[in-house]
């Protein structure tokens, strides 16, 4: 049973207030959002910060719902919210096809190279020309996450050894 204590300690050491691992659906998205909202309400979080955290969480969770099934058909992924002294961190991890990782890397690099006005222009450019995909996305999720968080998006790709990559994404939202 040592792992229970270890896990508990890891969560505390990293200030993680919410960790979910498993299948992702719209229903689960709504439950996770409700839990995080209650947590922020009960701790009296600033409404501006609360809205931004909610916003980034939605985009992150709906990304997983739409894409996590691509590799394993099981929507298996992890979603984490951390609450530090100065910021909230919203983290997701899900397996993707290796071929997808290059495309994602380019997209995220482009987004991180842009300042506030650059992101605004990119958002407007995409929304004018986009069509909703078969998966229901508008191709605006990462841009919106970067805009709302006000910080670059951190990311990593970890080789899972079975021809897929584990895509980790972290958005940070400063607390006022």
């Amino acid at each position: 049973m040592q792992y229970i204590f270890d896990l508990h300690k890891t969560l505390l050491d990293h200030n993680l207030i919410l960790v979910y691992e498993g299948e992702f659906t719209q229903e689960i998205t709504k439950s996770i959002l409700a839990m995080a909202e209650r947590n922020m309400d009960s701790s009296g979080e600033e409404s501006t910060v609360k809205r931004k955290v909610f916003n980034v969480m939605v985009e992150c969770l709906q990304n997983i719902v739409k894409h996590a099934g691509d590799v394993q058909k099981k929507n298996a992924a992890i979603f984490i919210v951390g609450k530090l002294e100065n910021e909230y961190v919203i983290v997701s991890g899900n397996p993707i096809e290796t071929a997808e990782s290059e495309k994602l890397k380019d997209k995220l690099e482009q987004i991180n190279s842009l300042d506030k006005d650059g992101l605004k222009s990119l958002y407007k450019e995409i929304i004018k020309n986009t069509e909703i995909s078969d998966k229901g996305g508008a191709g605006l999720g990462f841009v919106d996450m970067a805009r709302k968080s006000g910080n670059p998006l951190a990311y990593d790709f970890i080789d899972t050894g079975d021809g897929a990559q584990f895509f980790c994404l972290k958005a940070s939202i400063s607390r006022l």
Binding site: F54, K128, I132, A138, L140
Partner: peptide, 12 residues
């Protein structure tokens, strides 16, 4: 109060 990016396309 809030809308996601997929809704923003439909609002447009």
């Amino acid at each position: 109060e809030y809308f996601n990016t997929a809704s923003s396309k439909l609002i447009l």
